[in-house]
Amino acid sequence: MEPLIAVAIGILFAAAVYMMLRRSIVKLVIGLMLISNAANLLIFATAGMVRGAPPLVPEGLSAPVGPVADPLPQALVLTAIVIAFGVLSFAVVLVRRAWEIVGADDLDKMRDTDT
């Protein structure tokens, strides 16, 4: 599965970068969402993808039976998903606020700090 997901992640990154290079500020936000998802998936997949072995300890035992998926990258990605959401909501509100004040959605027209 990993080679396939590697290609998928590459396409996700390419899409994200393309959107972040746009002048429209709304597209920039979409690029931001794409890149955070792509990065999460990259961390998750690089650690190795295991089918059907979640890192859980069965009831009554002190350790899982047999090998399980690596829990550490999962914990990292979990944190990253939540933080990405925080950043996204901030960015979205910021963009909206900028649009209200400047009245332009073209980044090239937002070069002045005095508006």
Binding site: I9, G10, L12, A16, L21, R23, V26, L42, W99, D108
Partner: peptide, 29 residues
Amino acid sequence: RLPRFATLSTPLERLRDLAVAALTGGLIT
């Protein structure tokens, strides 16, 4: 509450950005 998508770049710029994006994505893969 935000503006619609506007086409602000020329085709050439889009092609250039596409190249950068493809290179980055390819490198990650």
